[in-house]
Amino acid sequence: MKRPAYYSEIDPYLCQWLRNLIERGLIPPGDVDDRDIRSVQPADLRGYGQCHFFAGVGGFAYACRLAGWPDDEEIWTGGFPCQPFSVAGRQRAQADDRHLWPELHRLIASARPAVFLGENVSGLIPLGLDGVLADLEAEGYASRAIVVPACAVNAPHRRDRVWIVGRRLADAADAQRRSQSTGGNVGVRPDANRAETNCRSAELGEAGVADRDGERSGEARRFCGRATQWPAGSGEGVVEHPARQRRREGWAGPAVRQWGGVALAGAGGLGDADDPGSQGRVEHWQRTGQWDAWSTSRTLAGRRVPESGIRLLADGISARIPKLRAAGNAIVPQVAAEILRALRG
């Protein structure tokens, strides 16, 4: 019998959304817990395979399905609240009462899942990423972080997000030994070069322990299982502060589109019903993974300005506000799926 999945989400609207997705078989079957994470105890999580915290609309669970991750194979995910680190807020970081990483860390430390995958806004990098990686490493996890934007899978927007991976060291050491014995390229290798960032990323050394101070500037190219093509002039560091990107000249469209390789099947989008050409663009994107607006648009300080006619708001949609809030807090599952595929080797 397969172990069920566990979904932790406090918003009643999103809890029902998750139950609907489970009922339709779009995400792994499981239980939805609507309690505050501060009330969740490690004993409550026994018997579950996948555990998704701050589950939202089930983006991580759907990403597991896209990546072929078995429903009963252990993995924990958590897009912990970004409000303490987002440029849209006051960026009070640990002083913000919505800073809930310590609660997720508490559960990870007690249950010690085999794999953890987290996500947050890039504002976490200067304000708290060091602490998150240090917490994981202190619990015996090899950890690293990488910024992957939505456009890496040819979504029609930038949406920089930092993705945090933690693998329990015993499991990671076994995976590295299997890779070396088969001549694979899954394991990580030492590199003397340090990335231009203040965060720490961990790797497995020859002794199978985490190097807390190691930065591996070349590993980002192999992290997603393909020879990633980075925009000209960009650093190769695992994590790069978005301010560096904003200071650059605008990137060429082909460089941005090639960054993530071929788009994943099933990417979706919303069109503006008042714009006669919008639905055609959406269908073209879903079919080919290419967004026509990008080929004719220009860049401004590294940010893409879409062609006119793409509207930012929609009217006449039922429950529009909770849906927008849910979408704003959601991950892009196709990005997470690429990372999950790499984790499975």
Score class of each variant (00 low, 15 high):
152 A>T: 06
122 S>Q: 03
317 I>P: 02
326 A>S: 14
74 E>C: 01
321 I>V: 02
252 A>I: 05
171 D>Q: 11
62 Y>N: 00
62 Y>A: 08
2 K>W: 00
220 A>R: 12
294 W>S: 11
3 R>I: 01
67 A>N: 13
224 C>K: 00
330 A>N: 01
225 G>A: 01
170 A>M: 13
168 R>S: 08
184 G>P: 05
132 V>A: 03
158 R>D: 03
315 D>N: 03
36 D>M: 00
123 G>C: 04
91 Q>M: 14
265 A>E: 10
121 V>N: 10
71 D>Q: 02
141 Y>E: 03
304 R>S: 14
320 R>I: 02
68 G>V: 01
138 A>Q: 14
21 L>D: 13
193 N>P: 01
34 D>G: 10
48 Y>P: 08
64 C>S: 09
341 R>Q: 11
221 R>K: 13
69 W>A: 05
300 L>M: 06
83 Q>W: 00
202 A>R: 11
300 L>S: 06
22 I>P: 04
19 R>H: 08
158 R>H: 13
259 W>I: 01
31 D>M: 09
167 R>V: 14
78 G>M: 06
341 R>K: 14
174 D>H: 12
154 N>Y: 03
222 R>Y: 04
7 Y>D: 00
286 Q>R: 05
6 Y>C: 11
322 P>D: 00
324 L>H: 14
160 D>K: 09
278 S>D: 15
102 P>W: 06
309 G>N: 13
323 K>I: 07
60 F>T: 00
82 C>L: 09
272 D>E: 10
107 L>C: 08
83 Q>H: 08
59 G>W: 04
10 I>A: 14
218 G>C: 10
141 Y>G: 04
197 T>D: 08
222 R>S: 10
316 G>D: 00
207 A>M: 01
145 A>D: 12
82 C>K: 00
342 A>T: 06
221 R>C: 02
340 L>C: 05
212 R>D: 10
298 R>E: 15
17 W>E: 03
260 G>P: 12
19 R>Y: 05
137 E>K: 04
75 I>F: 07
22 I>H: 04
176 Q>C: 09
57 V>Y: 07
202 A>F: 09
75 I>V: 15
191 D>W: 12
158 R>Q: 13
7 Y>P: 08
311 R>M: 04
